[in-house]
């Protein structure tokens, strides 16, 4: 897949008192993600061309994709496509990249969400609501042993915008 057309639309950076190996593990393994990501299970086949998936707490496939870059514990790039009928057709593929770097005694984690076409702020608002919550909770889990309990309201602005585009969203 050619990713040269992808532009970063949302970047979120967070510093964590941990090691790159532990941050990598938390990002790629279901036993961790279930704790900080509202019960969602991240499944990562850790090789280029491997499968990437996020399952909802009921086991259903919520997000599916492929591993495009895998350089543990430094860089992981995956396609991140939410399985709502018509979504990929309208928005194109979503690319999510994690970069993990040592910064002093802590780790800098940078998440970049990129797209191959211009998307409205309404569409992008879903990710901009979600990423800070997910990654704040991941940080708390690694630093204190306890994730945050963040009750998120549905991302109505994004859902409405998707509906306008003809994507079948669960409302």
């Amino acid at each position: 897949m050619d990713i040269s057309d992808f532009r970063p639309d949302t970047v979120y950076t967070i510093y964590i008192a941990s090691t790159p190996a532990k941050v990598w593990e938390a990002l790629t393994r279901a036993e961790f993600s279930r704790k900080y990501f509202s019960g969602f299970a991240v499944e990562t086949d850790l090789k280029v061309g491997g499968r990437f998936a996020v399952r909802a707490p009921d086991g259903s496939l919520h997000i599916s994709g492929d591993v495009l870059a895998c350089d543990p514990p430094r860089r992981l790039a995956v396609t991140w496509n939410v399985n709502w009928p018509g979504l990929v057709e309208k928005l194109g593929t979503t690319l999510v990249t994690y970069e993990i770097e040592a910064a002093g005694d802590a780790v800098r984690l940078t998440m970049t969400e990129a797209h191959d076409r211009p998307l409205s702020d309404d569409i992008l608002s879903g990710g901009r609501l979600g990423w800070p919550a997910i990654l704040s909770s991941l940080k708390s889990l690694l630093e204190t042993g306890e994730p945050l309990v963040i009750k998120m309201a549905p991302p109505l602005r994004m859902l409405e915008a998707l509906k306008q585009l003809g994507v079948e969203v669960p409302m």
Partner: peptide
């Protein structure tokens, strides 16, 4: 970090 764990980061 400081508010949750009592320890600020060393960056």
């Amino acid at each position: 970090s400081l508010l949750e764990s009592g320890r600020a980061l060393d960056v």
